[in-house]
Computed example of a mutant assay.
Amino acid sequence: MSTMFGMADGDPTPGLWNWAIGKRIDEDRVRGAIAGTLERSVVPLGADGMIMCDVYAVGGDFPTLADVYLAPAEVAETTAASAVAVRLDAAVLLPDEGLDPTRYVLAEPDGTLRPVHVDEIETDDGPERRGLRPCTGDDCDRTPDRPAAA
């Protein structure tokens, strides 16, 4: 199995996924979508469980943040994010390994994955992401059909 988009599947901190969701969604619904995707119990941060998920609201174009702790290593983050986006009918934004801090992977509500750029502003409530735009240029040559050259 090949990776589609860098950090999303090769994160140096295995078991931690940090996602931003493109609309406000109740925390129980987010946890339920992740649990259904992973076929495992997902509990709030601090509760006893194999997978924990902290969900909170911020401003910006992706106002629901989900931090998933102890995510299973055998599941590619991009695959999980794609399935969760479909279940929630909302875009899910996740990190990319590129050197450009504005580059992310977007899992669209239909499950499509694509590289994008967004601007991130750190606030007291957490990071806000705004200004979604297509990925163009040299840093955007990697796609599911055309991985980056080794």
Rank of each mutant, 00 (worst) to 15 (best):
96 D>W: 04
100 D>T: 10
120 E>L: 09
111 G>M: 12
108 E>S: 12
88 L>A: 05
111 G>V: 10
85 A>K: 02
86 V>L: 06
97 E>I: 07
96 D>T: 00
113 L>Y: 02
87 R>T: 09
93 L>T: 04
119 D>A: 13
119 D>Y: 11
91 A>S: 15
85 A>M: 06
112 T>L: 10
108 E>M: 13
113 L>A: 04
111 G>Y: 10
93 L>M: 14
109 P>L: 13
114 R>Q: 14
92 V>E: 00
112 T>S: 14
101 P>A: 11
90 A>M: 08
88 L>T: 01
92 V>M: 09
92 V>R: 00
90 A>Q: 04
85 A>S: 14
95 P>N: 13
120 E>W: 11
101 P>M: 09
104 Y>K: 05
86 V>D: 01
98 G>T: 15
105 V>R: 03
107 A>H: 04
107 A>D: 03
93 L>C: 02
89 D>C: 10
114 R>G: 09
114 R>I: 09
105 V>F: 06
105 V>H: 02
96 D>Y: 06
106 L>V: 07
111 G>H: 09
93 L>R: 04
110 D>L: 13
103 R>Y: 03
121 I>L: 15
106 L>K: 02
117 H>M: 10
116 V>T: 09
93 L>E: 04
119 D>I: 12
86 V>C: 05
115 P>Q: 13
97 E>G: 15
104 Y>D: 02
105 V>N: 03
99 L>A: 14
101 P>S: 07
89 D>M: 11
121 I>H: 14
115 P>D: 08
90 A>S: 14
99 L>C: 06
98 G>S: 15
96 D>L: 03
86 V>N: 01
97 E>F: 13
110 D>T: 15
107 A>T: 04
92 V>S: 00
87 R>G: 08
111 G>N: 12
113 L>W: 01
92 V>F: 02
110 D>M: 12
